[in-house]
Computed example of a mutant assay.
Amino acid sequence: MSNALAIAHVTQALALLLASNVGPEFDEAVKVEPHKPPTEPPDYPTINVFLYQVTPNTSMRNNDLPTRASDGTLVKRPAAALDLHYVISAYGDETTLVGQRLIGSVVRTLHEIPVLPKDVIEETGHLPHLAGSDLAEATQRVRLTPTVMDIDETSKLWGMLHQTPYALSVVYQATLVLIDGREQPVPAKPVERPEVRVLPFGAPGAPVPPGAGTGPGADDGTSVNGSAIEAADAQQGH
């Protein structure tokens, strides 16, 4: 579980992960920018990490219900389960195919490291704009999975980016990001009778098993226990 800074924290951590693994492969520095693709493509090696959509996670969206009791008191802190959708674009000198080389390195990096490492999350958590984020303490790790975007979806996405020319890109989905509610649930009531007794059948005070017939319930009016045996002996004596 994480607070409301989790979305921005995942984006920043993804950018740092790519910068740490893609940059060393090139003779010149590679700049990684976690924001919308530029309207004027840079001519130096650049990777752009753009979060273009946030959607509810279909398998976990109702996993935390119910969160309130019948009287309205909070019994469980609600959590929003989200998937983050990223388009990762590459820019550079086309004569040396820098963009294609960068995309190849991005794909290899995220295939080798599909889960955001904790040390990367902790390092990005020191940034001033992420102060207070608790993503590093979350038990659920964020996994990055490549997704397919057809021509129609690609056209719509880049069409929404006004005056932004298309660049060679790959699309990834980050799953699962859980954002906690702020309200604290009401503490559970204390146990009224903490003592627990375990007794075998037949022990004093133990419940009577169904059909045992230990009380006065036999057809001849005698009880099905030692009294019944005494009644049988008396009849044989006559």
Rank of each mutant, 00 (worst) to 15 (best):
M1A: 15
M1C: 13
S2Q: 07
A8C: 00
V10H: 08
Q12P: 04
Q12M: 12
A15Q: 12
L17E: 08
S20E: 15
S20T: 13
G23H: 11
G23I: 03
P24I: 02
F26V: 02
E28Y: 07
A29T: 02
K31T: 15
K31A: 15
E33G: 11
E33W: 07
P34R: 10
P34E: 05
H35P: 05
K36S: 14
P41G: 03
P42L: 03
D43W: 03
P45A: 09
I47F: 00
V49K: 06
V49I: 10
V49W: 02
F50Q: 04
F50M: 03
L51I: 05
Q53F: 00
T55P: 04
P56N: 08
P56S: 02
P56R: 04
N57A: 07
N57G: 08
N57K: 05
T58G: 06
T58Q: 12
S59T: 11
S59C: 01
M60I: 00
R61N: 09
R61A: 13
D64G: 05
T67F: 01
A69G: 15
S70E: 14
D71R: 07
G72R: 03
P78M: 04
A80P: 09
A80Q: 14
A80M: 12
L82R: 08
L84E: 09
L84G: 03
L84D: 08
V87M: 14
I88N: 13
A90F: 01
Y91E: 07
Y91M: 00
Y91W: 06
G92N: 03
D93M: 00
E94W: 01
L97V: 01
R101M: 10
I103W: 04
I103M: 07
I103V: 11
S105N: 09
S105Y: 01
V106G: 02
R108N: 09
H111W: 08
E112V: 01
P114T: 01
K118W: 03
V120I: 14
V120S: 10
V120A: 12
I121Y: 02
I121C: 10
G125D: 06
H126S: 09
G132Q: 01
E137V: 06
E137S: 10
E137R: 08
Q140C: 07
V142I: 08
T145L: 08
P146S: 00
V148S: 13
M149H: 11
I151H: 11
D152S: 04
E153H: 12
M160K: 14
H162F: 14
T164S: 01
T164Q: 02
P165R: 06
P165V: 02
L168K: 05
S169M: 05
S169Q: 08
Q173M: 10
L176A: 10
V177E: 05
L178Q: 11
G181K: 06
P187D: 09
E192N: 04
V196C: 00
R197Y: 00
L199M: 10
P200K: 10
P204E: 10
G205E: 06
G205S: 04
G205T: 03
A206N: 13
P207A: 12
P210H: 09
P210V: 05
G211P: 09
A212V: 08
G213H: 14
G215D: 15
A218W: 01
D219Q: 12
D220P: 11
D220V: 02
T222Q: 13
N225T: 14
A228G: 15
I229W: 09
A234W: 08
Q235R: 15
G237E: 15
